[in-house]
Design a binder for these strands. Structure first.
Lengths: 204, 204
DNA sequence: TGCGGGCTAGTCAAATTTGATTAGATGGCG
DNA sequence: CGCCATCTAATCAAATTTGACTAGCCCGCA
């Protein structure tokens, strides 16, 4: 599942309490998170994702009160959708998935982390930390062994850069774990969790 | 220009001294750099990029000695191709381009950094450093101002993560500048620069 | 000597992404 | 009122990406 799909699924889920969300709403929400920049979300992709997710039975079209203005199709999560969301979210939080796409594949999940119960989030992050440390060790070893195989010498720089990013991720992850443990943020199992009303971005 | 295109252009350029490169060769080279992982390079994209670049006049098909085995079309850089390569390379080294795609858009350029003369590389990196510091300051400010607009509180974590990555990039960039200044790596204007024979990956 | 497996080289249909464009409402303003 | 600008909502063709698949060649080996 691509980052876009998770984002779309997540945003629809947020608005699930208030009768679902339509494409433009999702788009606005994502725009307001600047997701067009860090996750490369274009309007077309959103509508495509909605259709695809509906086709796969993760979303369901709901009745729109009336047809004032343009078309406007709204969607809600099905049970399968909720499962997929949870699964994908947890996977992305826990798994480092070799560099590809880098930070933003993870960011797409981070945005929804409060949809998890606190202890689960902690467990997943702890697991992530282990992975990151493993990765760090790998990259470190390759670097130490020096100019490995035939690769041009300056690919060492690539490794050094990855190492720096690993370190950054490790320390940030530890920090987040600490903050969560200290009770920061309202998680899914906390009193007063209202995932839906996130932003007063508001609309129609 | 996408990362894939730069990579393809760069690899063809490497083999330019020895009568150009054909698709499979490029694919192999990129595979040997694990570019399929960090830059998401699939076979289809390579052949597509080759055709596109040829169509745009950046590459040119060259005569293949004989048709032993499968088809095998080889390409070389045109002058326009060299220009485009230099331009894109320099742009990517110098410009931070807001987060999208993150590290790997830059990595695609880093791989070819020795194709630049030393002083130019230094200037570009210095410029990059300034940008990174500006970005860091921005993110830092937003974080300090705390829960800004209606955004869910935990997007602060997103900013914290970006901040950490900024810091990592800044310190890595400074390091690379120092190493280049100290004369490390063989750059385009150094004696003994043989960009082409990078890897004994070899082929047919 | 003939057959499986692996490498070379590339193609292709299907899926996805891009981002410009359409088209109706809404709102201000001279 | 008449008219332009902007917001809402979504569609569409074109470009690109995905990765499974074809197909010839070469090598060893039973």
């Amino acid at each position: 599942m691509s980052a876009t799909r998770l984002l779309v699924l997540g945003v629809v889920r947020m608005h699930d309490g208030s009768g679902g969300a339509h494409g433009y709403q999702v788009r606005r929400e994502l725009l307001s998170w600047s997701a067009d920049k860090w996750a490369n979300v274009q309007p077309g992709s959103i509508y495509h994702a909605l259709k695809r997710l509906a086709l796969e039975g993760l979303l369901e079209q709901v009745e729109t009160p009336q047809g004032k203005g343009p078309d406007r199709l709204a969607y809600t999560l099905t049970d399968a959708g909720e499962d997929a969301f949870q699964h994908e979210l947890q996977q992305r939080i826990a798994d480092v998935d070799g560099a590809a796409g880098g930070a933003y594949e993870f960011s797409a999940a981070l945005v929804f982390i409060t949809a998890l119960p606190r202890q689960l989030a902690l467990d997943l992050l702890e697991y992530r930390l282990v992975q990151l440390e493993g990765q760090r060790a790998n990259v470190g070893t390759v670097l130490d062994k020096g100019i490995e195989w035939g690769q041009p010498a300056h690919v060492n720089e690539l490794y050094r850069l990855w190492l720096a990013h690993c370190d950054a991720d490790i320390s940030w992850t530890s920090g987040l774990i600490a903050r969560l443990r200290a009770g920061e943020y309202v998680m899914a199992d906390d009193a007063g969790h209202n995932f839906g009303s996130a932003a007063p971005t508001a609309m129609s």
